[in-house]
């Protein structure tokens, strides 16, 4: 807009580049823990006096993430203006790499939870999740060797990262909660890939779950593939 244009005229290209680099750096640091970055925080901590040219700076940061890192900076939750980084490469670098990449066991845990939610139509009562996890020797009431406090990981960490939504079911006594996919899961997780592995596990054609198959392949949500 013209306001941005006027703001840019008061700055040297080097100043704008420097500010953009700081924004990129800040987002990379925040992404270490996969916590979404709030626009308000970004402006307050980093952009500061450059807020009039903020749209231009975020546009440039997006371009750098795409062109240099192969990552996509996306806005989730447009109401609260939050950003996350998503991989832009078709297959993750670690998956097919000839050099040994460490794996994160929480990916497995997350996969189980997201799969159950997806296969059950998008919303699942929390008991259903805990029961499934218990069968896998993961008990929310006990310290787990690999995950520590599992209840905390699932209902706090995964929620803060926006992989899961954990909400109270209205009018239940005693209080009950349910799980849904969070915004990050919508952006990051491929339903088609989940079904693919589901089929492999059950030795069954993925198309036999017709409802889910249709959802995965018409892209009724924003996830790719």
């Amino acid at each position: 807009s013209s306001q941005v244009q006027r703001g840019l005229e008061k700055l040297t290209p080097a100043q704008v580049d420097q500010k953009t680099a700081e924004v990129v750096q800040y987002i990379l640091v925040k992404d270490q823990k996969k916590i979404p970055v709030r626009r308000a925080e970004l402006v307050k901590n980093i952009v500061k006096d450059y807020r009039t040219v903020y749209p231009e700076i975020i546009k440039r940061a997006k371009r750098i993430f795409e062109q240099v890192f192969g990552l996509k900076l996306v806005e989730i939750d447009p109401k609260n203006h939050m950003y996350i980084l998503v991989n832009n490469l078709d297959t993750p670098a670690a998956a097919a790499s000839p050099v040994k990449c460490p794996s994160n066991p929480k990916t497995g845990l997350l996969f189980v939870i997201l799969s159950v939610i997806f296969m059950k139509g998008g919303i699942v009562r929390e008991n259903q999740i805990w029961n499934t996890l218990k069968k896998l020797r993961v008990d929310p009431g006990q310290r787990h060797e690999e995950f520590g406090d599992v209840r905390k990981v699932v209902t706090e960490e995964f929620v803060r990262q926006r992989y899961l939504e954990y909400t109270r079911i209205p009018h239940t006594e005693p209080i009950e909660y349910e799980f849904r996919w969070g915004h990050r899961a919508d952006m990051e997780v491929s339903k088609a890939q989940i079904l693919e592995f589901m089929g492999q596990l059950h030795e069954q054609d993925p198309r036999s779950w017709s409802q889910q198959y249709r959802e995965a392949h018409t892209g009724s949500s924003s996830s790719q593939n």
């Binding site: 992404d31 993750p92 066991p105 497995g108 996969f111 952006m187 997780v189 592995f197 790719q224």
Partner: peptide, 26 residues
Amino acid sequence: GFLPKDAWHRLARRTECCFKTAPTFH
């Protein structure tokens, strides 16, 4: 029965391809 020590790593490695997670810089 009991699960081997690397059970969850095994599952993680297989299911990584379901996630388009950005690698992190440390």
